[in-house]
Design a protein around this nucleic acid. Sequence first.
DNA 1: GCGCCGTATGTTACAGTGTATCAGCCTTCC
DNA 2: GGAAGGCTGATACACTGTAACATACGGCGC
Lengths: 161, 161
Amino acid sequence: MHGHEHGADPHHHAHDFDVVARAEDLCRARDLQFTRLRRDVLETVAAAQGPLGAYDIAERLSVPGRRVAAVSVYRALDFLTELGLVHRIASRNAFVSCAHEHGAGEGLVFLICRTCGGIGETTAREFEAGLDRALDRAGFKPASRIVEVEGECGACRERQV
Amino acid sequence: MHGHEHGADPHHHAHDFDVVARAEDLCRARDLQFTRLRRDVLETVAAAQGPLGAYDIAERLSVPGRRVAAVSVYRALDFLTELGLVHRIASRNAFVSCAHEHGAGEGLVFLICRTCGGIGETTAREFEAGLDRALDRAGFKPASRIVEVEGECGACRERQV
DNA sequence: GCGCCGTATGTTACAGTGTATCAGCCTTCC
DNA sequence: GGAAGGCTGATACACTGTAACATACGGCGC
């Protein structure tokens, strides 16, 4: 599993090549800089099969003559995460790219496959609504949510049948 | 916020002193050892107002003459987490104690307060059901779930009105 | 041109998180 | 007594993340 499932109709982006185009649009629209480093980091994450750690990214971007420090990668990742182009997987301390548009109340869920190590996504509005009710009961005012499920993705289940 | 909210009727344990008793029962029932280190770690986590990192715990347990290494704390935390006596907060790399009984299909949610830094809990079966449907649609077979919400807890909201 | 300022990046150092490995200790079981 | 297994200690190491400061580059006013 190295793409994304989205909503009730899972579909896969084997390459996610359009993330960069989306990044350019977003940055133009908001008058932000889409620099070389940010592009490199985004492309690296998008090209990866699974989630990448910041130091992995730094290593992949470092070639003899140009060394990219992890701290620079973190800054680029912060920038990209802010724009929603990259997601952080808290339970793995790693990052994945994402070309989707994400709206509020969408109920974004990350699916972490134990077998292939890939990260999928799905959304569930109904679950988001149920969560909101629970938060309301508890008197808690939410600002951000993290929902991560570990298990086995469909592709890996089929493969081992 | 330094207790736990549970279900529709939030209640607080200011001290969680009964966690240790629960640990003893559990270990007796399963023929596991509730050693001094494990007890110390559990008591330290339970006594804390907010989540504690493993190194924090190690430091608090270390006195001149007895130094507790972080690695020992990790082992004890693994043990306690396995029993459900301690929860790991993935987005904070930290741990909290918990005296509840947790059943399957319960929909456990961690509430992380930005203001006081405390960790609350709530549960929402309906939300769990919605999540299960979304996972089913995506063809994903779940093994474990992490739901963490960051925001502002009820106590802090009242305090600043 | 020149200086100023804000943003992005480079560099180093450091703090925090987590695991691997080996050794010793203690209890239990034969 | 001796073997085996579980727990802890100790050291080293890898990985994750941030703080602090310096530098480079581009725009803008003069």
